[in-house]
Design a protein around this nucleic acid. Sequence first.
DNA 1: TGATGGTAGATGTAAATGCATCTAATATCG
DNA 2: CGATATTAGATGCATTTACATCTACCATCA
Lengths: 128, 128
Amino acid sequence: MRARERLLAAIEADLKAAGMPPLAWYDVLWELARSHDCKLRPYEIEERTLLAQYNLSRLIDRLEREGLVRREVFAKDGRGRWVVITDAGRRLRERMWTVYVRSIETHIGCKLAETEAKTIARLLERFL
Amino acid sequence: MRARERLLAAIEADLKAAGMPPLAWYDVLWELARSHDCKLRPYEIEERTLLAQYNLSRLIDRLEREGLVRREVFAKDGRGRWVVITDAGRRLRERMWTVYVRSIETHIGCKLAETEAKTIARLLERFL
DNA sequence: TGATGGTAGATGTAAATGCATCTAATATCG
DNA sequence: CGATATTAGATGCATTTACATCTACCATCA
């Protein structure tokens, strides 16, 4: 819990210092960018990011307001929506990644050997 | 990050189901209860819990409003305060612990062997 | 001593979150 | 078919958090 607190604070600070939005934006944009058609249903984003439904709904509002994603109708089910990443969204994600990857290397990579990182991942994935 | 998300959600849910306040309250009460004189300076709580200063200040407001802690003057430095845990605070912490410990056992203990838990702790403490 | 800078903690305001609930659409089953 | 239940996502409202700044006090040093 504490390690996560420290690391997240450091990474968020790096993003902010580079004039970037919060990490949660990255997570959503990344899930969209790597998805099959660059679009996902809100509930799929929810599952992948573990964001709460009502938080995600509003986060999508913000992303949409910034032109990073677009909501489209989901024809097969009138209740559903597609969330589609835009070119601007894709570009922002890439720019965020250059900051993020450096941050990961600085705060995490240099403190863990490959095998150690794998060990942590193996043990922690039991909780998922 | 995800493991923490899942675990914290589960633990918070257990606390809430038992009619208890959030885990952050526990953390503060616990730091106070185990401190030398059952009192700490706000900045000490901040260091131990990693809560942000402005969040802690308001969390202490809430705890004080509930009669769980008391703010007292810190004679040696007029800028400082003592935060003192009250009997009610101590009792609440104990009641929270009975829920919390069960929650830890349910969600964590049964999924990790002692040595595995120690491995995680050893690796993650590099970030602290 | 008194100007300057730093520290401890509080707080106004804006933004985000949590909770409960709502709307609209679909699924189920008599 | 029609009533009822369920699901996807949005939203009103209260609480909490973030950011910036403030107040009060202390430390330093010319």
